[in-house]
Write a protein that binds this DNA or RNA. Structure first.
Length: 631
RNA sequence: GCCUCCGUGGCUUAGCGGCAUAGCGCGGCAUUGGUAAUGCCGAGGUCCCGAGUUCGAUUCUCGGCGGAGGCUCCA
């Protein structure tokens, strides 16, 4: 816990004399502090306090504490790297969510190099080196780091911005740093270097390529172990692995980034889609379908040609250039323009499960999470400016209802504003951004702002859902667009018998069917709730002579739409149960002599509880209810 | 696209400059068995593709393709 203490210095009655260090006070108060905030300024524990002050001690439990701890570990790592690889030039080493990294200018490190670096780090920890801060003039800093062009670049920037230069030293290692840091290296006990990869200096692909080493660090060994356990659990839930094991989908060299959906995957797909279609109806949408390939002229007009060409696929038809659609909006616009609209028709909500193709860079493809062809649960709302805010609010409700049905209770919202490459006037952008933020404020929803992250035609709000492992995924998006209606000259007849310009909202709730199903597979670790499960029931026969009874039970369940398979292989019950469990089937029924005689079934649930003597009718009633309620 | 690592029957994997491992799965036979792997037998491989080095390459080198993790991007 961060603990706040007000101290009085230099007064005879007080036990803290002027010049006492924050560390002394922490020790006196028995606080496991890493640093301190003295009168709202983050400082090292070694800081001397000379006047009456308010101290808040920063411990590992706080966000600041974690950052300081991780950052100190990054310094430790840099020290070890330079000791082992004297030619390596350290650049920057910030903290990230859950850990840290440090970029070095050096030839590639291998994973086995990391082991050596870790070993060296542990050695430095035992030396209990004091971490000392020094503020130095620019000139001295430039001299100190004269061999490191990256640090020189940073120092010159600081000078321009008028920022003071401070350095931290531990043993012979000295690094440019704002601080604060832990008092000495012995604080760092449980750390691990997790991976090495490359990154560019200042994230610019035109600049030098650097080696980035990632790591995690904790005050206690048990926390590190726990972290590694979680990592392992996440790897077990990898949808690519589960997709293979459960025969849901596959990828092939013949089409990089294009998923192949198998029968079992399609069952999940259809269930998700049917639910979404029902939700469209409930929310007064019309459903449409536009072609995949459309003439170049259309894409020129929509702006995709100018702003999205790099991600598009093209083909020549009868000598005319065509593009495979990367987005569904132009198609919907053509449908809108196909007839004249009155203000009475608006809002028009047009939904499509639209298959789009985007030529993503090969390096970004990742299972179902990032593919080159995917089906968006896309929709466009054409409305008047007056209706805009209300429509956004309705959409927010729509999105949240859908997420809770799929078992995602926790989500975060981000508002992304005008990017560099954009179209439309500043006024349009401002109006659109205001509409989104006003709707969010009225819904009393907290959100984060992502400056410059909007789509090229308008700002957006994104929904990031949290899965059961606490990982966050971007799914839904609501985008306001004043620009396309202008470009395509969309109109409606107003009350005054004059033509007006509608506003367009682009929205997706799941984002894409592919990514969403991938997220759900990981969220549920493949154990899909019954309504989504490809095989809901497996019936196991004890011996061949009960096959007929098993088929009878199967037929009964199938009549009510339950997805059921019979396993009548000549194998032991144990083996057949195990196989059904590996397939993550919801209910395993066993039928043998007892069951046939008493016209019952033995029901085994996913929590490995077996209930004998269950009446098939009762089981059927329960499972049908479970499916219907989407539990 | 760039950087690092990886590519061995359907899956997971051992291995190595000189007939290519094993387990799972698959097929057959025996077993008709009561809740997390019955036993035996068998089939199945251009060791990702191409070039080079070599008497000889799955192994070494180079190039390509694909995958993983990053950078960047993003539904």
């Amino acid at each position: 816990m961060a603990k706040q203490i007000t101290i009085k210095c230099g007064k005879s009655k007080n036990k803290y004399a002027s010049g006492v260090t924050a560390a002394d006070v922490a020790k006196d108060k028995k606080i496991d502090a890493l640093a301190a905030s003295v009168n709202d300024k983050l400082v090292d524990l070694s800081t001397k306090i000379r006047k009456d002050s308010e101290i808040i001690f920063v411990t590992y439990d706080t966000h600041e504490g974690k950052e300081i701890f991780h950052h100190s570990t990054a310094h430790l790592m840099a020290q070890a790297v330079i000791k082992l690889y004297p030619k390596a030039l350290p650049t920057i080493g910030p903290t990230i969510e859950g850990g840290f990294y440090y970029d070095f200018d050096h030839s590639p490190f291998s994973p086995s190099d990391l082991k050596g670096i870790e070993k060296e780090m542990r050695k430095i920890v035992t030396e209990k080196l004091e971490v000392k801060r020094k503020q130095i003039p620019y000139k001295e800093a430039l001299k100190l780091f004269k061999k490191n062009k990256y640090k020189i670049e940073l120092i010159k920037e600081f000078e321009k911005e008028g920022k003071k230069v401070s350095v931290y030293q531990q043993g012979k290692f000295i690094d440019l740093c704002r601080g604060p840091h832990i008092p000495n290296t012995s604080y760092l006990k449980a750390f691990k270097l997790t991976k090495v990869s490359s990154a560019y200096w200042r994230a610019d692909s035109k600049k030098d390529s650097l080696q980035r080493i990632y790591g995690v660090s904790f005050p206690k060994e048990s926390q590190l172990k726990n972290y590694l356990r979680l990592k392992l659990e996440a790897a077990k839930r990898d949808h690519r692995k589960i997709g293979k094991e459960l025969d849901l989908f596959s990828f092939h060299e013949e089409g990089t980034g294009f998923p192949f959906w198998h029968n079992k995957g399609m069952i999940i797909w259809d269930e998700v889609m049917n639910y979404m279609k029902a939700m469209l109806k409930k929310n007064n949408y019309q459903e449409v379908r536009a072609p995949l390939i459309l003439n170049k002229e259309l894409w020129l007009k929509s702006g995709h040609w100018d702003h999205y060409k790099n991600n598009m696929y093209f083909t020549l038809i009868d000598g005319q250039e065509h593009a495979v659609k990367p987005m569904n909006c132009p198609g919907h616009i053509l449908i809108y323009k196909n007839s004249i609209h009155s203000y009475r028709d608006l809002p028009i909500r047009m939904g499509e499960f639209g298959l789009v193709h985007r030529h993503e860079m090969s390096g970004v493809l990742a299972g179902l999470f990032r593919v080159r062809s995917f089906t968006q649960d896309d929709a466009h709302v054409f409305c008047t400016e007056d209706q805009l805010k209300d429509e956004i609010k309705k959409l927010i409700d729509f999105v949240t209802e859908v997420y809770s049905t799929f078992g995602f209770k926790d989500y975060q919202i981000e508002l992304s504003t005008k990017p560099q490459d954009s179209m439309g006037s500043d006024d349009m952008w401002k109006n659109a951004e205001n509409a989104l933020s006003a709707a969010l404020k009225e819904k009393k929803i907290d959100y984060k702002i992502n400056p410059g992250d909007g789509a090229f035609y308008g700002p957006k709000i994104d929904f990031h859902i949290k899965d059961c492992m606490g990982r966050s995924w971007q799914c839904g998006t609501i985008q306001v667009d004043f620009s396309m209606p202008e470009r395509f000259d969309l109109t409606y007849e107003g009350k005054n018998n004059k033509k007006h310009r509608p506003v367009m909202l682009h929205r997706a709730i799941l984002g894409s069917m592919e990514r969403f199903i991938g997220i759900m597979i990981e969220h549920y670790a493949g154990k899909m709730p019954a309504w989504l499960s490809p095989v809901q029931v497996k019936i196991i026969t004890v011996a061949d002579r009960f096959n007929k009874y098993a088929e009878g039970v199967k037929a009964k369940l199938e009549e009510e739409g339950v997805r059921v398979e019979v396993d009548n292989k000549k194998e032991t019950i144990g083996r057949k149960v195990r196989e059904a469990q590996i397939q993550k089937i919801n209910y395993i029924l066993t039928v043998g002599e007892k069951e046939e005689k008493t016209k019952t079934i033995a029901v085994r649930t996913r929590d490995n509880k077996v209930k004998m003597g269950v009446k098939p009718d009762k089981f059927l009633k329960d499972i049908v209810k479970e499916i219907k309620e989407k539990r």
